[in-house]
Simulated scan of single mutants.
Amino acid sequence: MKKRKCKQYFKLVMLLFGVSFVLSSCQKDDDFTRSSQTENSLNPKFKISKINKERIEDNEL
């Protein structure tokens, strides 16, 4: 009987540890995603500007 209670407590502890580990991992992943999106928005790779028709016509391929 005592071995059975120990197994049940062990399973319960492992379940709680597993759930807390998964939740903390997901929380860190969200922080990483947000920080990388913020860095990308601060340092754009492309420059956007308006051009007129003459500039398009002057463009040589």
Score class of each variant (00 low, 15 high):
residue 55 R to M: 04
residue 30 D to N: 14
residue 38 T to F: 06
residue 39 E to S: 07
residue 26 C to L: 11
residue 6 C to K: 08
residue 42 L to W: 05
residue 28 K to V: 06
residue 3 K to L: 10
residue 53 K to R: 14
residue 50 K to Q: 12
residue 46 F to L: 06
residue 22 V to K: 01
residue 33 T to D: 13
residue 2 K to Q: 07
residue 3 K to D: 15
residue 4 R to I: 06
residue 2 K to G: 06
residue 50 K to M: 07
residue 19 V to A: 06
residue 12 L to C: 08
residue 42 L to S: 10
residue 57 E to D: 13
residue 23 L to A: 08
residue 50 K to V: 09
residue 50 K to I: 09
residue 5 K to I: 13
residue 21 F to S: 13
residue 28 K to G: 13
residue 54 E to W: 03
residue 39 E to A: 10
residue 46 F to S: 03
residue 11 K to L: 06
residue 46 F to W: 01
residue 44 P to T: 00
residue 60 E to M: 02
residue 43 N to H: 14
residue 18 G to S: 10
residue 60 E to G: 03
residue 22 V to Q: 05
residue 29 D to T: 12
residue 29 D to C: 15
residue 32 F to Q: 05
residue 19 V to W: 00
residue 39 E to C: 04
residue 23 L to D: 01
residue 56 I to P: 01
residue 8 Q to T: 14
residue 52 N to R: 08
residue 36 S to M: 12
residue 6 C to M: 12
residue 5 K to Y: 04
residue 39 E to K: 07
residue 54 E to K: 12
residue 44 P to H: 00
residue 2 K to N: 14
residue 4 R to D: 15
residue 61 L to Q: 03
residue 48 I to T: 02
residue 29 D to H: 12
residue 36 S to A: 11
residue 39 E to L: 10
residue 25 S to W: 03
residue 7 K to Y: 00
residue 54 E to S: 05
residue 31 D to K: 05
residue 36 S to C: 09
residue 21 F to V: 05
residue 24 S to P: 00
residue 61 L to H: 00
residue 16 L to R: 11
residue 9 Y to T: 11
residue 60 E to K: 04
residue 31 D to L: 03
residue 36 S to T: 14
residue 54 E to Q: 12
residue 44 P to K: 01
residue 13 V to I: 07
residue 50 K to F: 15
residue 52 N to T: 07
residue 7 K to R: 13
residue 10 F to P: 09
residue 9 Y to F: 04
residue 30 D to Y: 08
residue 15 L to A: 10
residue 45 K to S: 13
residue 46 F to A: 03
residue 1 M to F: 11
residue 9 Y to G: 09
residue 9 Y to H: 02
residue 60 E to W: 00
residue 47 K to Q: 10
residue 47 K to E: 12
residue 1 M to G: 15
residue 59 N to R: 05
residue 49 S to R: 10
residue 23 L to M: 02
residue 61 L to R: 01
residue 4 R to A: 13
residue 5 K to S: 04
residue 49 S to K: 13
residue 29 D to G: 09
residue 41 S to G: 02
residue 54 E to A: 12
residue 43 N to L: 11
residue 33 T to L: 08
residue 19 V to E: 00
residue 55 R to A: 12
residue 7 K to L: 08
residue 55 R to K: 10
residue 4 R to L: 15
residue 10 F to A: 14
residue 2 K to P: 13
residue 29 D to E: 14
residue 11 K to S: 03
residue 24 S to Y: 01
residue 32 F to I: 11
residue 47 K to G: 04
residue 51 I to M: 07
residue 49 S to F: 04
residue 21 F to C: 09
residue 25 S to M: 04
residue 8 Q to I: 09
residue 44 P to W: 00
residue 55 R to F: 05
residue 9 Y to Q: 11
residue 35 S to V: 06
residue 55 R to S: 08
residue 6 C to P: 15
residue 15 L to C: 11
residue 8 Q to P: 07
residue 30 D to E: 10
residue 27 Q to R: 08
residue 55 R to W: 02
residue 25 S to V: 00
residue 5 K to C: 02
residue 40 N to K: 15
